[in-house]
Design a binder for these strands. Structure first.
Lengths: 248, 248
DNA sequence: CGATCAATTGATGGGCGTCAAGGACCGTGG
DNA sequence: CCACGGTCCTTGACGCCCATCAATTGATCG
């Protein structure tokens, strides 16, 4: 996302935020172009580094590529991941600038991130109703995902992991980053463990069990879902909560 | 909340929604009065009954008294509660009317509920910025609570329960329903079990342990927190995530 | 006073955490 | 080229937290 691209070139470049809001049916062409103007110079964050320790009140991180996560450390040092941010996701978009936050935003894989000017985005939303609706829709979807994770926490660990894989697959598909029901996540088992709140030793055994049941295929951090339908059934996964279109 | 009260009488009556938004510092006097006009005839829901099975697109349930919960049944029949609604809480305020929902809203104790006209509330928010901000603030707080519950799920069950008690206590305090660090919840152990995702047998043993450590006092559904500070310490509870004022 | 619901207690077992050690795959440097 | 250190994956042993099953008690109520 170079700053000196022309409008047409920008339009060619897949901007995952626009892609997502478009997919849900929010943006007019004018609004798409307006959003493009906000995505200027990006920075690259290495895996395992933090993207935002304490939230800046001036800018909003936008993930362009890679997988990031919202997490927190418990007093005993244990990390809990409460959300995965995929390309096109904004971090703490609507939180008041004064909301104190104890959350961290960490890069799990290498990430390209743009720091969007908060005020500029708010101004844009004030002028373009489609943008305003789309942004609120995005945070309401995040709320739905958190609720679904809470339900997920009451499932046994193997179904929990399957549910997470299904969610990530579907979300990646809507932004064009996964085809034919398979995706390369490149997440470590430690990361997965902290997301579904089990030990990394147990994650390892669970993945073997899913693999032995021909539900997934995995090696060296790559994970592929080879039987999405059976994994949905097994994991009690229903993509409805992701509200892939603004009316569903 | 009778429909025939005068404005002054309404102002005297504690409307928990207004009380809460006021506590956070959002409403002008005019806006308070405007909100009062929306709270007309209420209905009474008995404990264990559902307040809203499938969401009406026309009205938004507002809890006036009692404790309700958002929950879902897993395929095996297990119930998971993902949120407690206290007096002053609106249910699915900002969800698009077309958002399909698989959530249930159930009354855990006897509840007084008002069905607020959705369009009237939206109109009000459009004319009064304080109301609009306050309502969005409320759903952002709910998002924060869900995230905190996710972290809570990674704690051992006794700390998890303590954390829940602390949250309920603080939330009740802000609407004037709890004093001197104690409150009568009247929740059954089964309800608590479904909220922190443990069996009701185990809840029973956990409560005994908290009681033996002089952290709480409980009998017949009543729960009193007798040492809030120590319970906070034990449960890793920090009320900051509740954002009790709009700037904190 | 029986019926119903909530709280309680005991016994048993499994899911999963913890500790510990080994192996596979990097990248780097001698 | 191989030695190496680092990171991640893997496996086994052991034990605890907590689920499940089963049964009893106590409280409330028609």
């Amino acid at each position: 996302m170079a700053a000196n691209q022309s409008g047409d070139e920008r339009r060619m470049t897949a901007n995952p935020l626009i892609q997502r809001l478009n997919h849900a049916g929010f943006l007019s062409q004018v609004e798409q172009d307006a959003l493009h103007a906000l995505v200027l110079k990006s920075r690259c964050i290495q895996a395992r580094e933090d993207i935002a320790q304490s939230r800046s009140t001036q800018t909003i991180p936008l993930i362009l590529s890679g997988i990031a996560c919202r997490y927190k450390f418990r007093p005993d040092g244990q990390r809990r991941i409460v959300h995965f941010l995929l390309p096109g996701d904004l971090y703490d978009l609507h939180a008041s600038a004064h909301f104190a936050s104890h959350w961290h935003l960490g890069a799990l894989t290498r990430c390209q991130v743009v720091d969007v000017q908060r005020q500029a985005l708010l101004d844009l939303a004030a002028r373009h109703p489609g943008i305003a609706q789309g942004l609120w829709w995005a945070t309401l979807v995040e709320l739905e995902i958190e609720r679904e994770w809470l339900v997920n926490d009451s499932r046994p660990a193997d179904r929990r992991l399957g549910h997470l894989f299904c969610e990530l697959l579907v979300r990646l598909q809507t932004i064009g980053l996964a085809r034919d029901n398979s995706c390369d996540l490149r997440l470590t088992q430690v990361d997965l463990a902290d997301a579904i709140a089990v030990s990394f030793v147990h994650i390892n055994r669970i993945m073997q069990s899913l693999r032995n049941n021909n539900l997934i295929q995995c090696q060296r951090g790559y994970v592929k879902i080879i039987d999405y339908d059976r994994l949905c059934e097994f994991s009690e996964f229903d993509p409805a909560f992701l509200h892939l279109s603004k009316n569903a």
